[in-house]
Design a protein around this nucleic acid. Sequence first.
RNA 1: CGGGGUGUAGCUCAGCCUGGUAGAGCACUACGUUCGGGACGUAGGAGUCGCAGGUUCAAAUCCUGUCACCCCGACCA
Length: 524
Amino acid sequence: MNRALRGASRSPADASRRTPVYDLIFDSQNSLGKAARMTDKPDEKKVTPRSQDFAAWYNDLILRAELADYSPVRGCIVFRPDGFAIWEALRDELDRRIKKTGARNAYFPLFIPQSFLHKEAQHVEGFAPEVAVVTHGGGKELEEPLIVRPTSETIINHMFAQWIHSHRDLPLMINQWCNVVRWEMRTRIFLRTTEFLWQEGHTAHAMRAEAEAETLTMLEVYRKFAEEILAIPIVAGRKSAAERFPGAEETYTIEGLMGDGRALQCGTSHFLGQNFARAFEIRFLDEKNELVHPWQTSWGVSTRLLGAIIMTHGDDQGLRLPPAVASTQVVIVPIWRKADEGERVVTAARSILLALENAGIRARLDERDGVTPGFKFNDWEMRGVPLRVEIGPRDVASGEVVLARRDIPGPAGKSKAAMNEVAVRATALLSEIQKNMLVQARAAMDANTHPVMSYDQLRTQMEGEGGGGFADVYWCGNPVCETKIREETRATCRAIPLNQSHPPGKCVVCGEPASERALFAKAY
RNA sequence: CGGGGUGUAGCUCAGCCUGGUAGAGCACUACGUUCGGGACGUAGGAGUCGCAGGUUCAAAUCCUGUCACCCCGACCA
């Protein structure tokens, strides 16, 4: 995404530096943020305000916080250390939770024989257009082209066929962390990139009910993980047939709602039935000595979650990271003028750093020379560090420090703590911040979720650019009604929430009886 | 694939119409003064003007070709 992803993203300064005339005449095709940009004074230090141009804000944050950078390859990004650290933290925690369910990690090849893709009809239909194909190797044309995995369903099932012979081999539960490639026409940093990192779990079970249960177990693992670790509120639900994974019998989603009112699928869990088992001839002898196909699931989350974190929590000051995934949880900013002050302040700051580290906190002392404390405050806020310790000569004298919370901006988020209690206070605050971020995000989601009783109301809600939040509607389940909504409002069915307890109603489109409610929204 | 647009310093752009020694802001380097919410001064480094050909005494500038990229549409997790 050299320019591809860069497109929407001008640096804040440059966006506003351009003259109004330029914007009106030449930028008229770019629907976002024209009007606001015109009135803005150039301010190179600030990021494009979120309310002004969400897409530009999003890109500004990623670049300024140094999470990722564009690469020379279209659609591909570089994960910089601060961005990759979030992925690592997230991955380590999720990996623990996946293993707890009984799955084990393995690794399958990047390359897959092209013919494998063709074995499952829906699967090939779904993925063929976005697959990268390797035709040459070692200077010669290959007998059979290899595809670069867009997902590993096929090759894993090929192996499953060799490994599964008896019901005693089941359940077989495999997970792999890897990269996949999908040749998307339009990419967006973290949300849809040509190559991305993910985790894909694949399981095979003797009984249909077991596989169905596994699908929902993993959905719940994802939901809890997203809410507890990423502080992203989730709607767990079923996908409509149109939104289903190619080859799946049922697809479930953990759906999030981003700061601009657009929905984002944060993870999926599929019940595959016996589709792949048939296609790849996976069979086993059951207890009755009959040769039967196993029932399967697959489930995954990707680096898209980084985008979800940014778009759920970020503000005009920059990133806001949930403490659980922040590579720096606490930053200490020393403040001083004269050399003798500096000596005392830095000495005190170092002992605080040690105390924090001993308490198991990922802490860091910003000893940079040549930038002012004010700059450091802003810099670490941009990078999303959840908690800041400010320590100056006055604090050293009084034996106190200032603690500033990232989740509560301004003076309201500042408090004082005795120097010998900093680690204890920081530990408590980090856990409070983690919880509070979920509370804040859930409030935003609730405020953007509207029960909608009429089709006109639905249209009104989805009018204009950007998202319109979730529309909570009765839907009869007919794809015709779904298509009508999509074509006329650009909103799609994001989820049919689980465990509904609504009385039957009437479809918001056709008025026919509807037993379930569904959430529609414009999506990423 | 259709429509629109852009290639000049790391980034964003001016210069092109009317040919004559390559510019600005930000970023970067050094030094000094600064430092409780984004400091300032001075000096400095940095560009085969996307590429190829043509016109000309002379091309970033004019002409022809070509390549790349961006936006909108179509398609799609």
